[in-house]
Design a protein around this nucleic acid. Structure first.
Lengths: 352, 352
DNA sequence: CTGAAAGCGCTTACAG
DNA sequence: CTGAAAGCGCTTACAG
């Protein structure tokens, strides 16, 4: 049985402000024993009506809120979920967190967030900082190797957009979205428009999702029987796209369609190409990945693969909730959510 | 003296994964008393060298990490800071959190985040959910009234972008940025370009910052001796801007310059105006507020007031850290960070 | 129905 | 230098 850590409605006890009082204070004021106070407050077993009322009044008057640290010490439950992220910046992350937060609220869980664990040492520090403070963990670690992740934990873990080895998928939940398939969709759209000469900007070499997207591109080329394509270096930032654009301008013959591993890179390509006199989409079609808001406002608006990142957050939190509720279940979930191509003005048929 | 809650380097204890062990386990394994283990681990007073080594080995072998709940119960310190936000979505928020997180890491504090407290009841629930779990609080509550904020807390609070009444500024720290001044800068730029007929889209009526920005506009008009301006309804979303654009198209004579209370609204105006045949900036200049990334990518790129929101996060966390370190200090800080106008292509001189 | 007691995992005076 | 004891704030068998 999951013990209710939050017993009080906000209506009843809205005075965190007053001097913190303990259960002893409530007992003294209501003239009953500490045990009885506890029983009333937790509704744990029958208590004489008059005492119940006295206790409730005393608790309200004192603005009593139980100390969660003392409770956690007993139940080994905290009511919290830890979120471990590589960074905390950007639209991608904030969408994700929106889904997580919403689902946490529904289940009366609080969120403990630890970010910027790019290196293994920081990762360990992050993991430690939530030790015994949370009942479960949501981890997004696209740049860690499977070994570094150190899967054995004494709390349930759900991985999101992280390189979990296949053999580990039987021991942890994994929520993902279809990185490979997204690029395949993008390529297919361009093929349908008539494009045959492609370039792909690959994203950071260390990122797990960039690797999958690249694989998706290569497989899509193979499936289409195309060999006339270039793969270019470039990370996830606008600057990377601007640099990659220079490389593309030097290609001869020039590709008629360019794909980038994410939107910010694609937006950099957009300005880089137009600075170089290449019009998008007239001279060259362009597709990004993630469909961040900026993609929508760019001119031409950027065709991009939309990722259900909020939904990923919701599903991840739901998985954690399930694991917390059923600690003995050995069943694990591995989900890959579908993605969608959002076609905007940055794509069209090739000119010649 | 601030007690060091995190004693272990991540190098030494990287095995959260193993079965959680207690200080008793370490004592048993190393053959010393629990008190001695505690003293070694906390480096709290001299211990015989051989015992020290035995304890350190035992702790490492067992992957011992002290239970923070037990510690908090004693010190009344948690090592955490609570962040209370109205929502968790968008570029504004994520920049803020980046500054907060970075500064928290530097001070070895973890973050407990609670979002979406638009209503007073949710606010209370949020405040309660961090009770005794954090040593300090950063609060961003632009839509709460000063009364609802309930300033008395048993942990230091720093308010950010929130309507703190002047009389309360002697009891809490307030970190803000210059909402009023930002609009004044924007108006001045347009005046310098020669504009004399303005419209302003006011943002949500309940938001504290929108109110300040509106005041800034009205004061700037008064200072310039202008009476020929319109104030239009419209919230903070793109859709609001699109609607406001329709209202502007109906104005006669049409304003030559439009300001919006934030960027997303301005981006909506941008598309609404151009749909209505009004070219920006040729027929009408346009300025937003916040300078979100999307503003940069829009075409024409949006002139906007840049807010040092990451810096706000850093300063807020620094304030909390100071308050935690000096709990008896009655000194309070009230900072208003300067903003900056970023001029891009959406503004120019009036055509006639 | 109710109180005294033991215990969650830790730290810190208190006596050696 | 070191161990036994008390206590942080709570809950839960254990006896009435």
């Amino acid at each position: 049985v999951y013990f209710p850590l939050k017993t009080f409605s906000s209506q009843e006890f809205n005075n965190w402000g007053r001097m913190a009082s303990t259960i002893r204070d409530v007992a003294l004021r209501s003239g009953v024993s500490i045990s009885t106070v506890s029983r009333v407050l937790n509704n744990t077993c029958a208590v004489a009506e008059d005492k119940r009322i006295r206790v409730e009044n005393a608790a309200r008057d004192l603005g009593y809120i139980p100390n969660p640290n003392a409770r956690s010490l007993l139940h080994k439950k905290t009511g919290g979920v830890g979120i471990l992220l590589p960074y905390v910046t950007g639209e991608f992350f904030s969408e994700f967190l929106t889904g997580v937060d919403e689902t946490a609220k529904q289940n009366d869980l609080f969120l403990l967030i630890s970010a910027s664990h790019h290196m293994a040492s920081e990762w360990q520090a992050s993991v430690q900082s939530v030790y015994k403070r949370v009942d479960g963990l949501i981890v997004m670690a696209p740049q860690m190797t499977p070994r570094q992740l150190n899967l054995n934990a004494d709390a349930p873990i759900v991985f999101v957009n992280s390189p979990v080895a296949d053999k580990d998928k039987s021991s942890v939940d994994v929520i993902d979205f279809d990185n490979k398939g997204g690029v395949a969709l993008a390529v297919q759209h361009l093929l349908d428009e008539g494009h045959r000469r492609f370039a792909y900007v690959r994203g950071p070499r260390l990122a797990f999702d960039a690797k999958l997207r690249l694989d998706g591109f290569i497989e899509a080329m193979a499936a289409a029987g195309l060999t006339d394509f270039s793969i270019l270096e470039g990370g996830y930032d606008q600057e990377d796209g601007i640099e990659a654009a220079e490389a593309i301008l030097k290609l001869s013959p020039r590709p008629t369609a360019v794909l980038a591993a994410n939107d910010y890179c694609a937006l950099g390509l957009l300005s880089g190409l137009s600075s170089g006199g290449v019009r998008v989409p007239e001279d060259c079609s362009l597709i990004g990945f993630d469909s961040v808001p900026s993609a929508r406002y760019a001119r031409p608006a950027l065709t991009s693969v939309a990722v259900p990142i909020r939904e990923v957050g919701v599903r991840a939190m739901q998985s954690v909730v399930r694991k917390i509720a059923e600690p003995d279940s050995t069943e694990t979930v591995s989900v890959t959510l579908p993605v969608e191509l959002v076609v905007r003005e940055s794509t069209g048929p090739p000119s010649s």
